[in-house]
Each structure stands twice: as structure tokens, then as C-alpha cells.
Write a protein that binds this DNA or RNA. Structure first.
Lengths: 142, 142
DNA sequence: CCGAATCCAATCTGATACTG
DNA sequence: CAGTATCAGATTGGATTCGG
């Protein structure tokens, strides 16, 4: 995926002029979409962003709250998100040093379209699950 | 037979707050978000959905239009999307058989939140790129 | 407490060749 | 034309261990 519409009137992909997309799509080069989807499409980014969206968290807090993430992936994902300017890292020089993460303005702005997608997922999860079952049954009914 | 989805009322509350999310997140088990993000987070799904969103395409058309996708990945991604009920596969029994793919009602409903995300990516791509450069420079200023 | 480094298994992707 | 099969390389994610 790749470029898209002018970005404001995006609500009608199928009725209006998705025509414009295609042209940008096919040229994979500097696809901005890929950049984003690849980042939030990994295993933990969306979850971390969502959690940080509620309030800032310290490293240990995040770890406890997600709890099935390995320390390695938490560190790495936080780093990547920070690199993209979506979250901010603030070192607090206490005795045992602590580090606080929070979403930046840019990160907050992402949270909104992201929540739409999440909302969609929630509303349609049952439908998807059903479709999967039907498909799997019809393929391997044996 | 398939969707029968309403598929129209997806323009959910803009920012009803990530508050409610967290609880559902932390229990990873049947997290609906993962299901969706994992699917569209792969390398080709969003692109294919977007292209099919403009109009139905035949297999070969898709292949030519995307052109840097391998036949293997095109087949596989289409299959996965079909499995989730997002696209429909219609075999046309012509002499050399042809197969047409199109987005279902469910797929169309996904296109909307998806395009929001894409729009966000476009609007902020420069900002992200800049953030990355700054980060990379500060890390390896050598 | 926070995070970097190493090792390793699992998954994903592409190239190529083959079938109906 | 559409799809499958197999193999090799790249990426990802987890466990463990060490350091500031």
C-alpha cells in the first residue's frame, strides 16, 4: 500500500475517487503507507501506543501491564516508536533510574485513526471469525 | 451468500478515548485487534484491498498493476483476505479460466477506517521522516 | 531499574519450476 | 490464465545473560 487521497476526504474510497490511489500505489519506492503500516503492523506497537494513550507509563509499568511481552521486544518497540516521533522518552534521574514514556502530539494524532480501525475490528470480529470458519470448513471438510 | 453486513455505520465516535481499550488489550487471548492488525499488517493486504476498492480485478490484472508482488504472495494474500470475508472470489468459466476478485461489503466497510489511517500516514510522512533522521543522527552522530 | 547483546527457533517472502 | 510446490534467504520474536 502506498499513497492515497488528499487525506481529508478519505471517507469514500469506493464511491469517490480512489482512482488517484492506484497510481501512487504501484510505485513502491517511497510509499508513506508502507512506512506506517509496517511500523504499527508489528506485534506490539498498537498495543503499546494504546496503553500509553491512556497515560504516561514507566518501563516497568508497561512491562507489568502487558506482561506477556518480552523485555527485548518492549525495549525495541519503544525505541522504534520513539524513533518515529510517536512517543517521548524521559529519563528521571532517581536513585534507581526510571524512564517514563508518553505519546507525543504526533502519536496522539495517530491514535484517532487507529482507534477507528480498532473500533472496526471490534464491531466485525464475530463476522470475521465466522467467515474464517466457513472458509476453513469448505476447504478441509474432510 | 456471505456478508450481509450493514457496513455503513462504521464512522464511529472519533475520540471516545482509549480508556476502554486497555482492558480488552491486556487479555491477549482472543484479542480482536490482533486478528485484524496482523492481517492488514502484512506486506500486501492493504495495497491489494485498496486496489480492489477501486474496482474488481482479475488475477492477472492485479499482478500487472502491483507488478512487484510475486505470484506466490499475491495468491496467498488473496486467499487470506477471502478467508476473512473481506474479498470475494468469482470464477468465470471462460476458455482460459479467469478469476475475478472484488471487495465484499465487509471489505468495503474496512476500507473507510483504513483510508483514514492512510490519510494520516500521508499527512505526517514528512514529520516522521524528519523524526527518524533526527533520531538516527543523535544516535550515530559519528 | 532500564536496556543492550547473543543465540536460536519460527515465520515470512521471493525465485523458480510445474500443473489444469 | 490461475494456481501450486519446493527450496533458500531474510526477518521476526523469545530466552537468556550481562552491564550501567
Amino acid at each position: 500500500m502506498k499513497g492515497t487521497t488528499p487525506a481529508e476526504a478519505d471517507a469514500s474510497p469506493s464511491t469517490e475517487g480512489p482512482r488517484a490511489w492506484k497510481e501512487k500505489f504501484v510505485s513502491i519506492e517511497d510509499c508513506p503507507i508502507r512506512t506506517v503500516i509496517n511500523q504499527i503492523g508489528d506485534k506490539w506497537s498498537v498495543l503499546i501506543l494504546a496503553v500509553l494513550g491512556t497515560r504516561p507509563h514507566r518501563f516497568g509499568e508497561l512491562r507489568r501491564e502487558i506482561d506477556d511481552i518480552s523485555q527485548r521486544m518492549l525495549t525495541q518497540t519503544l525505541r522504534d516508536l520513539q524513533r518515529d516521533g510517536l512517543i517521548a522518552r524521559r529519563v528521571i534521574p532517581t536513585v534507581p533510574p526510571s524512564v517514563e514514556y508518553s505519546v507525543t502530539a504526533l502519536g496522539k494524532s495517530l491514535l484517532e485513526p487507529m482507534s477507528r480501525l480498532i473500533g472496526w475490528a471490534e464491531r466485525h470480529q464475530a463476522e470475521i471469525k465466522l467467515a474464517r470458519q466457513r472458509f476453513d470448513d469448505s476447504v478441509a471438510p474432510e
